[in-house]
Design a protein around this nucleic acid. Sequence first.
RNA 1: GUGGACGUGCCGGAGCGGUCAAACGGGCUGGGCUUAGGACCCAGUGGCUUAGUGCCUACGCAGGUUCAAACCCUGCCGUCCACACCA
Length: 931
Amino acid sequence: MTVNWVEIQDKWQKKWADAKLGVATVSDKSKFFMIFAYPGPSGYPHVGHMRGYSYTDMITRYERMQGKEVLFPLGMHASGNLASGFANKIKNKDEQWITYLRTNGCPEETIPTLITPEAVIEYFNEVYVEDYFKKFGFLCDWDRYTCTTWKDYEKFIQWQFLKLQQKDLLVQKPYFATACVVHGPVAVDPSETDISKGGKAEKQEYTLLKFKFGHDYLVAATLRPETIYGQTNLWVNPLVKYVKVEVEGQNWIMSEQAAEKLKYQKDDVILKEGINVKDLIGKTAIAPGIDKEIPIFPASFVDADMGSGIVTCVPSDAPYDYIALKTLEENQTLQSQYGLNVNVKLIPIIESKGYGEFPAQEIVQKMNITSLEDPKLKDATAEIYKVGHHSGIMRANCGIYAGKRVEEAKELVKQDLIKKHKADVFYDLSEEVMCRCGEPVVIKRIDDQWFIKYSNQELTDKTKEHVASMNIYPKEYKENLPGILDWFQDRACVRLGNWQGSKLPFDDKWIVEPIADSTLYPVFYIISKFTKNGTLKVNDLTEEFFDYVFLGEGKGKKAWKPIKEEFDYFYPLDINLGGKEHKTVHFPVFLMNHVGILRKEDWPQGIFINNWVTGKGSKISKSKGGAEPIPQAMEKYGVDAMRLYYAHIGSPHADVVWDEPVVLNYKNQLEKIYGLVEKLNESNGEAKLIDQWLISRMYKHLQQINDSMKEYSLRELASIVYFTIHEDLRWYVRRGGVNKEVIHEVVSMWLRLMNPITPHLSEELNPSKDLISSSSWPQVNESKINPNAEAGEELIKTAMDGMRNVMKLAKLEKPSTFTLFVSDGWRYTLFGILAEKINETRNVGDIMKTVLAHESLKEHGKDVSRIVQSILKDVSRLPYVVTSREEELAVVKEAQNFLSQEFDCIVKISEDLNHEKAKSATPGKVGILVE
RNA sequence: GUGGACGUGCCGGAGCGGUCAAACGGGCUGGGCUUAGGACCCAGUGGCUUAGUGCCUACGCAGGUUCAAACCCUGCCGUCCACACCA
């Protein structure tokens, strides 16, 4: 059978739109407001993105069916430089990107127009909504769609920053930013949106040690200031060009490259002259902190691009230093070339776990490293650094730091040296980074950088307290959040340069940085409706207006009343859903801005974290595949199959792998269901015993679903609806169920349960005119839950198994006659004394307590455990409620009918309780005799 | 480094102290249907078995708590993720 999914999708999406199902208005119902972290215009959404988005639609559909007034709005986070990055690639006719646009269905004539950020944003505003969200069946309130680069949004952000300032949550202080030498600040991260190279680079804080050298200073950059006590000499590289520069009135000597970088971090770095390396080697300098004169030696491993191009040598704890020293000691030619007499004694300074006095020496010997070229040196350094940092204790010769942990001493030594002007701070990148424009990226000091004061103790405490009352899924994240909030420090919130975004209201050279302008925005969906429909003009969005609507301050104009009413109705936000990448930045700032600015009753109520869809064996990415374009995927699998895949393949809070055959399986499953429902609809027959079973099962499933949906366990919902119920219905059909009324009742329930995950299928299979998407969730009817009916089916299944087994053993192809011996099991009463307890509770622990407490069982002594186990097994098999033997036999009669058909043979029932087969049968089951 | 998560059958993944040789899918094997393939339907899929759903061995490794542990505790090994102008 083939189902035309595309046609079905289009048909129902149109009907939903016509019925305006997504439109949210103030009503007397209770409300449900949910969003997902809006996307940015970085490209087309891929199968990974659609996962979390789909969850939002599933949850809001579920809540809508619970009778809530649902607000599910959407927007585009276009701030930052994603759009300009995108536009630049098209402008530069980047083949890869143009192909990417084509494969994703961008019309040929549109491609050349996407050369400005504005055009890119506009294009994606359209594409996201029309080709992705609507096509995925999302029931959003499109009247509220917003984009962060629109004028009305800017007004809102400016208000937000005014409030932050008024609440003293903004501060200006120096900042060391990663910046392109031409374009200003850029983001250095693995996604490489701003840069063309070096995404993995880290900003490292070096301590710049100043070695007195005559009237000048040699400056050596180190990541381990605490090791100054072990310094034996300085390293310079004879092949590196060194220069003398004037910095803050002093002369510093460093590599030319370092001086270049330092210009961005210090004022007035004036180049004075080049230095001849030969004038350095063999001389001495005064080491800071220990005030000791140490020699300057040559070493080839010193890199002009790293740090200052001068390295202080600590051979006891730095493998490179140790090997370099060894090499030099053994190289008499080199020594005499520079007139050196190298005879260095190692100084033990750190007590590292598992190592002796000289960890560097030890590890180098252990790893058999003899040359500076050995790549293992890197690992050795990392290992020593790790052990030293982690477990190290400063030894007795380390002055006032003796006995302190390395971790602690590091910071103290640094601070102390800086205070005494014997050191400075220098930032550098751990590897080379290039801007998209081809210029190098450096670390640049910005003096008047604005920060949001997330370190504010009151704000942090209030937020932590609020988190405790929130609904957060998964719960592990709820436990982590307080820690994250404590750790969260002040964060730069504006940037200089040509970015998309809102201007800072009181200092308009700054553009609000994209993370800072996406923190409080759920409130804006209240406003966007009115700016879009013309009720509000951009100029109406004054501080007074926002204060009135969002904070309830002031009297407000009459025209603002309905807007405030909407805000008061829909706020607070019930759930904000976002990927796990948002855990440490987006969600904390989202919370803190709400807490910092809004009234307590408007603080968010919930967070839902969804994990990723990964490619097979690797992260999903545009180049590596796995990023199957959605339009093609929708056609190939159908939207419902994809939604079901998302819901069922794994917990929302675990990563899953995008695996085509698996998605096809889900499509297949849906088609099986489609076929089954069609077949069921043709049924028109008698009521049978099995009807009660089916109805009972359905209500039990519903109960279970309702239970798990309290936590939005979409996987559980999917599992029951698409697999367990499907299986039940197949059994129903197999057992000859044909009751039209029952089928109608069950299918109608089933379709409604399907709506959150596969809305199109549910509508398509619905015979009635009313939309399932606007119907209500089925109600549990406990009186229809019938344990006896279920027990009966259990018996039939067991008898079937038994018969099959017996046939196999007797090697019978087709026996003529079976006799079923009904054991006395239904009234079987484990040890007599337990009967009451078992009837009272099915809880094994409770039964257990009775067993253990009972005198007469003590005789079983040491073997209690075993007895307990056997009792428990029997408990589990006792089919629910003890009834009369007549009822028992009625069920067996049912089995008799069914089994004789199934096996095409004669099935008899014997009531002979003394027959050996009846006696040997497990309680609650049947003994079987075959002839 | 800091913080977090995870490790179950041929595979994906349930189970979160007793109804567990382990749901549900997939794969594989056998049977049915069919001209054939696909789809669909049925059965089987740790080992041994005196056949009684009985015994044994299993849920990364090693211990511990308990009448009872895949599930709780401790240590170890391994995998993955987030860490601040990327949203």
